[in-house]
Design a protein around this nucleic acid. Structure first.
Lengths: 272, 272
DNA sequence: ATCTCCAATTTTGTCATACAAAAGATGGAT
DNA sequence: ATCCATCTTTTGTATGACAAAATTGGAGAT
């Protein structure tokens, strides 16, 4: 009779496995868990992970499953393994932070507001130019996709639907920009955003003004006016910044400290 | 006596393995090869890959190694596997194109000039703003890194050294911008660039003017003048565009077709 | 003839074990 | 003390077995 060592998994020989307890693959679960623990800082960059057999014991799974999980984390740049040495956590610079999973783990591990500010900063850099490009380069299908997303926002009955359509709207603009690198980048950004949509889109008047701002972008893109699209996108982002309280440091050239002392973590969850 | 089926690998039982023939791990090699073949279009999105045992036979390796390779490709969003179904190539939209490996495979598989144009377009969006942010937010260490890279460019004896220092210069600016998302993004961009540095940096007068343009950015950052940094970065990128012949469509709001009919693939390799 | 449901089949998922290879650790010879 | 071979530990690979999932086909009922 094998004891399950206080962890999530059971060995197959002991019990036929509840089956509804776990829907996903074992190696996937392991990768999720170990990856999240690395991002959480439980294993610092440069440090050694427990050896494979050790993981297997502590999770109550075979070394095979552990190895496949570790291969996934290697593929994401989190760790490297070498015989006799073990698996070592890579320096943060080689982590593939732009990977969906890694970003989700990071997002869960870091200060929420701080991360949101970073995302918004990248959006302020990317999206106005993407909107301008979309105004110049879009094809009919891409325009239809933007319009459809906008319609869904307009019709949205619930906050969840509105947010989903919102994400689709911005992704459609990225896609219409016609740059193959912008699309995956947008995926990362917007998926990070949807992780934290309990922040934004709370008040009705916010949604009403947001809708008008979205419509400005759509109109400029439809009319093929890149400069207007860029300006409209900037306006929308500023509005979003205002709603979620990120602030918009250093928008044009004036020197500003943008000190990190204003982090004010914690207390501003669910700002609505 | 087992026959090796015309592929790169040999079974361990047959021969002790030449050892200098292969330096890397088996699963890593497999992942590289299969991944590259997927990106090359040999297996279209939505189609089924050969089953694991099949891969094992054709490469002459065990199913274990194949599975670990497949797990890596799953981690990069290229494929999904399900029992009885097999491994199916995911739609391109879920490929993690911002992964180092995936980008390298893509870069090798796609039209070189077209891809370079995409990279430059993203650089034109990102780097001027990053330079502006760096001018506002840099700390002394980050500034030192930029200066060190610049010095290395100035002193560079060979084209290879110059290019390496060039990449480090731009990465240091991204890092100095103080946005945790810009750094990995820059890694991707610049590593893609270094893949194709047989293009740029060919003529001496190009390097001389490029050095001056780099110095303008450095000076603006050192003096904490974001607007100047942004303008200087734009100038440098325009210069790069000119050298590699990418062109700079639609820089400000004027409508332009930017038709893809000007692709002119092929003949412009090694533009120096 | 069509529909439903059960069984067979096929492929991935997991386990267990064995051994190879790499590279640090150890200890003895010089 | 230095250098060498040897030992030891950990990952890497192979193999074989079985479990689980999901398609497929067929048997039976209506």
């Amino acid at each position: 009779m094998r004891r399950v060592p206080g962890e999530i998994m059971q060995r197959k020989a002991v019990v036929p496995r509840p089956a509804e307890l776990r829907r996903e693959n074992l190696h996937h679960i392991l990768a999720q868990d170990i990856g999240a623990r690395i991002l959480k800082g439980e294993f610092a960059p440069g440090s050694l992970l427990p050896r494979e057999a050790e993981w297997g014991r502590s999770y109550g799974v075979s070394r095979t499953a552990v190895r496949e999980a570790i291969k996934m984390l290697m593929a994401k740049g989190l760790i490297v393994s070498r015989p006799k040495i073990g698996s070592r956590v890579q320096p943060r610079s080689s982590w593939n932070l732009l990977d969906r999973d890694v970003l989700a783990w990071y997002c869960a591990a870091t200060d929420y507001w701080h991360f949101l500010a970073s995302v918004q900063q990248v959006r302020r850099i990317l999206e106005p130019e993407a909107a301008a490009l979309a105004a110049s380069n879009h094809n009919p299908d891409q325009l239809s996709a933007i319009e459809a997303a906008f319609d869904d926002m307009r019709m949205a009955e619930s906050l969840g639907l509105w947010n989903a359509a919102d994400v689709r709207f911005h992704l459609a603009i990225l896609a219409a920009a016609g740059n193959e690198l912008l699309v995956p980048l947008g995926f990362v950004i917007e998926s990070a955003l949807s992780n934290m949509f309990d922040y934004t889109g709370s008040h009705n008047e916010d949604m009403r003004s947001a809708l008008a701002l979205h419509e400005d972008i759509l109109r400029a893109i439809r009319q093929g006016r890149p400069a207007s699209a860029r300006v409209a996108a900037r306006r929308l982002l500023s509005d979003t910044d205002r709603v979620i309280g990120v602030g918009d440091p250093n928008q044009d050239g004036t020197t500003r400290s943008r000190s990190t002392s204003s982090k004010s973590k914690g207390g501003r969850r669910h700002a609505g």
